[in-house]
Design a protein around this nucleic acid. Structure first.
Lengths: 266, 266
DNA sequence: AGTTGTCCTATTGTCCGACAATCCGACCAA
DNA sequence: TTGGTCGGATTGTCGGACAATAGGACAACT
């Protein structure tokens, strides 16, 4: 395995190219100089996106990859961390080799949550997005829901009603209700987007529910009405009640004295 | 720096713990055994999300991190690749040290695109999501747009009209139009979601525009109408025209003879 | 004064080589 | 069938090394 000690040559060749007067813009483009681990990662990523490597396929062992790419194993490993974090590969619990995988919804959601948090996105911004998406999801769900969807929603609704007063779990149940609704809407894209929003909102929502006494009953009521609308496949009602439901969140914040400009917390 | 050769001890201690009969659920939780690079990454990530490390702050040099965490530099580097791919840290072009950063919108979008592609999400699914989001974004934009937003939109619209027939660039201009609209709506969350959708749709959209002769003029027309609605701050019209605009995309696909079930391509 | 060349140091990118822990399958004993 | 034991394959981690580059300081040149 030959040492790679030729970066200078690689970099200076283009810079020494013919020079001419060019009216506008920079004369040269910045020369490509991404590290090997980036290229290795990109190469593997490309094969995955092109389906040459399918989800579930085991990746060749690190040593072999190193030989093929003509880089050191450490370099390969850095590339693998890249892909791992992107959710393109993962290690099944208790397995040795890495396998190709499809990014889990939760992974995408958490990526978006990070972005929202670090960009100081406020509660209203997320809420506004929910106001846009959720009612339409409910409408879709009213059309497409199966019996199984209904049962799952009912079960979750019951779980919420049964959850004790100060239960920190309650928010998770609310979140699950939203997720099930997304599933019933049969649209993976919206599910992904929704999930990100719910997850981002969850922590502050928890505070709100604990603070506002009426919150629990209002939520429970809305859930009941939404389920009923879905059962009757009443699109308009589903949309309307979900709208109300989400709007209530903001009201809850106001009642709790939390500013709408509160940034999403980590 | 001491070698760490004690994984067995660490792992078997809990497994050797007291055993008792427990009625339900597994007797033991799976023992934590994530590799060091994961923990290092998690530790740094936590500090970033907690704002102890702010965007722009330079990360300590790898050697120093290695000393602090008591791990080898290679291990630190693997952790850094993780964070890098998550967009939490990056290297400013031509800099040496890594700096803390906030995940760029484009990064989140490309993550979601990967997910959509690998989950075989179809064109209709993305289109449906656009039908949900875009009209509302247009409505918001009609309320919040500034003069500058209008100018930018107009400029892009002109660019689209001016783009030559077979220009593969045209789609990018269409995408930009959508992005500007998102910016005008002043909601970062929706911008993020939108961007993912547009990006995911772009490649197949390109094929459609090239195939369907009327596509260009219809798009141009819709853009004009949308801009006009924003100018007048006419919320209803904005929503209506955007709805039409997006609906047209699907029509274009039908005319082009592309199945709505076509999966999003890479 | 502005440009260019030289030298140093801090830090990254990459490599080499090594070894313990673990997984896996095969093979054997009870 | 169930429960050891054994060897090979592969990962996680480490120590250690060196070239390449960024950034700064400072002298030399025009």
């Amino acid at each position: 395995m030959a040492h790679v000690r030729s970066r200078r040559a690689e970099a200076s060749a283009p810079a020494a190219a013919v020079q001419q007067n060019v009216p506008d813009g920079p004369l040269f483009d910045p020369v490509d100089r991404d590290p090997a681990y980036t290229r290795v990662a990109a190469a593997i990523e490309a094969k995955i996106l092109a389906r040459e490597l399918r989800a579930g396929d085991p990746l060749p062992p690190e040593t072999e990859l190193a030989q093929q790419f003509r880089v050191h194993r450490s370099t390969v490993r850095e590339a693998l961390r890249r892909l791992e974090s992107a959710g393109l590969i993962k290690r099944p619990p208790g397995a040795k080799r890495m396998v190709v995988s499809r990014p889990a919804a939760s992974q995408v959601a958490s990526g978006m949550r990070h972005a929202l948090v670090l960009h100081d996105v406020t509660f209203v911004a997320v809420w506004e997005a929910m106001m846009v998406i959720e009612p339409e999801v409910a409408a879709l769900a009213a059309v497409r829901r199966t019996q199984a969807d209904l049962s799952a929603l009912v079960a979750t609704h019951e779980a919420f009603k049964a959850s004790p007063k100060g239960d920190p779990h309650a928010v998770e149940i609310v979140a699950r209700f939203f997720e099930l609704l997304g599933a019933a809407a049969r649209n993976q894209v919206l599910v992904l987007a929704k999930q990100s929003l719910t997850r981002a909102l969850a922590p502050s929502l928890a505070r709100m529910i604990d603070t506002v006494p009426q919150a629990r009953s209002r939520i429970s009521d809305a859930q009941k009405k939404i389920i009923a609308s879905l059962r009757e496949k009443n699109v308009e009602e589903a949309r309307r009640w979900m709208s109300k439901h989400v709007r209530d969140f903001k009201r809850g914040y106001e009642v709790a004295g939390i500013s709408p400009e509160t940034p999403i917390s980590a």
